[in-house]
Amino acid sequence: MRQMTDKRRITVFSTDQSLAANLDIRLQSRGYHVLVHSQIATLLGFAYTDPPDLIIIDLSSYDDDIRALIHSLKSDCYFNAIPVLGLVHGSEVESFPWDEFLLDDFVFLPIRYSELFTRISLSIKRIQRVFDNNPLTRLPGNTSVQNAIEDAIGKSLAVCYIDINHFKPYNDVYGFTHGDEVLRMLARIMFNAVKESGGGFAGHVGGDDFVFVVSIDRAESVCKTIIKNFDAISVDLFDDQEKSRGYFVSINRKGQEEKFPLLSIAIAVVPTNLPKIKHCGKVAEVAAELKKMAKKSEKSSFLIERRKQ
């Protein structure tokens, strides 16, 4: 992880060389580490490889590529916490299509630097304050999960609960650093699968409990993708010996040594348009029953609630 003593890093995008050079010098004088880009493709590549603390984008002229760039950053939960600050001509304040650009803040051109510096530090502080996502996986946390489930009730959606089988004994043997890595991996696999299926909600309740919400007709295929990808990734977390014999050894609840199968996941899928699903609590209750059944399998599996009553 980056050292706390490091300078805050700001990425600047502008095709106007003199503006970019000015920003570079002024921001550096304020103790920021600055990286200037004039090409969208390189900016996004670098932002992903080495995420900055804030991005300043010159919007004095803009096109679909810039729109798409901001959109792709803001639609990925790993990067949407990076504040994006737009530079817009004062004369365009009425006509600028604010809704199309997912900006966190803006500053008028020509720049008043005292204003820019204040907005930068406020943006960084604000994002830290409102960012209630799970710090480990950066997925939306419990409150957002509850809201997503409540919103889903009565619609043709499915609330899907995931947890990892035998996660506790895994954590006990391999330590929490490795355990945390597994959680991050599952989070990312779930997030990508939901996004690539056409969108939906992906959240982290806590521990090894995750929830995603997608439309009913896509639920099954998203479950299959998540299971396929989790199984591909998780097998590599074990060494050759464990892989070939198919289990790992840990201590069970009674304090005795026990063989546990390699990691797998269980997913309980609750359609929210069933007549009996009237409130959030019922969703969780049905999911808990389903999960008990899904967990009987030693392999990753999913179960969809079909009972109407």
Binding site: D180, R184, R188, N192, A232
Partner: peptide, 24 residues
């Protein structure tokens, strides 16, 4: 920034990064 420590195959790396990140 992702917090995975042991990604050693292209296919696993691509699963974890996702299509959009790989594309960019």
């Amino acid at each position: 920034s992702y917090g995975f420590y042991r990604v050693s195959t292209i296919s696993n790396a691509m699963i974890l990064l996702g299509v959009d990140v790989v594309k960019s």
